[in-house]
Simulated scan of single mutants.
Amino acid sequence: MSVTDRPVWLGRPKPVAVALKALALLLISGVVVFPFLVVVSTSLATKAQIDANGGYVLWPTSISFDAYRQIFDGTQVSRSVVISVGITVAGTAFSLFCTVLAAYGLSRRGSLFQRGLLTFVLLTLLFGPGMIPVYLMVKQLGMLNTYWALIIPGAVSAFNIVIIRGFIQGIPQELFDAARMDGAGEWRILWSIVLPLSKAVIAVVGLFLAVGYWNNYFGPLLYLNDSQMWPLQLVMRSFVLENTITTTATQLPGHVTPPAQSIQMALVVIATVPILCVYPFLTKHMSKGMLTGAIKG
């Protein structure tokens, strides 16, 4: 094939096209970075700077950590962060365990009730149970006002099962046959072959699950009656609506309370940073996990 016969996408881009792509990338990056910069800057700004800039600061001239001190000094935010981390870690681990087991069983032809169970799982993608039946189930199981109510009802998702099942089906059958000839059982095959080869899709699904557990606020609002058990997202919602945070700290003489805008933005930063810290370690698995799990060929 000559140079002139090559497809358009294989040719060298023109300088104008490169410049337009760079400009578009800069605009998109600005749209993404600008709001986050405003959030961080406002959380670090003083009351005088916020008043002078109409409530939000793009770049603070002097940095103040009063909002963060106010949040973590005897308030329920410190406890809610620990609760959110615990729920996210425990929920993600439990969900991945159940999802991987279900996906592996449904990917093996001839397993017990494989076709019927697969049909039942796929039907849940079309027909959801609804809020009231789930609440009644949680109540009947005695999980109200417990953290189990935030983990168990949404532990298994049919979408995640389908993604991981498709990935496992892409593993060469010869590997399973060779392992069985060497005397390996199903648990050994799952642990030694399937899990190491499925790191990409497990990382992707794990990220989806972690973000879902971390950002969940409606579940705690529905199932938790004790405010001392609230996770971070529900504490943030309470502050945004009522502009108050439960505190046990003593107000010191001469202490200046940070403005509400700084505390709100500081809460947003605290809720966003953990996911931002985890996401870069999983980005290399994102495209491979999604494409391999969703496309068969």
Results as ranks from 00 to 15, higher is better:
Tyr223Phe: 14
Gln251Val: 13
Ile132Arg: 03
Val121Asp: 00
Gln251Met: 09
Pro13Ile: 06
Tyr279Lys: 01
Ser62Gly: 10
Lys296Met: 13
Leu101Arg: 00
Val138Ile: 13
Ala210Asp: 05
Val134Ala: 11
Gln76Arg: 12
Leu10Asp: 05
Leu10Glu: 10
Ala93Cys: 12
Trp230Glu: 00
Ala48Trp: 04
Arg180Pro: 06
Ala22Arg: 13
Asp66Ser: 15
Trp9Val: 07
Ser2Met: 10
Thr292Glu: 14
Ala103Arg: 10
Ala45Trp: 07
Asn53Leu: 03
Leu209Tyr: 14
Leu10Trp: 03
Val16Tyr: 06
Arg79Met: 07
Gly130Arg: 04
Met137Leu: 15
Thr88Gly: 10
Phe34Leu: 15
Gly54Arg: 11
Arg188Glu: 13
Trp214Pro: 02
Gly206Ser: 09
His285Ser: 11
Trp187Gln: 13
Lys139Arg: 12
Gly110Ala: 01
Gly289Tyr: 04
Leu123Gly: 00
Ile189Trp: 04
Arg12Tyr: 09
Ile152His: 05
Val205Tyr: 06
Ile161Met: 14
Leu195Met: 06
His255Tyr: 14
Gln140Lys: 07
Lys288Glu: 11
Phe36Met: 15
Ile275Cys: 10
Leu207Trp: 05
Leu44Lys: 07
Gln49Cys: 08
Leu44Thr: 06
Leu123Gln: 01
Ile275Gln: 07
Ser198Phe: 07
Tyr217Met: 10
Pro15Met: 10
Thr42Pro: 07
Tyr279Met: 09
Ala19Lys: 12
Val156Ala: 02
Glu174Phe: 02
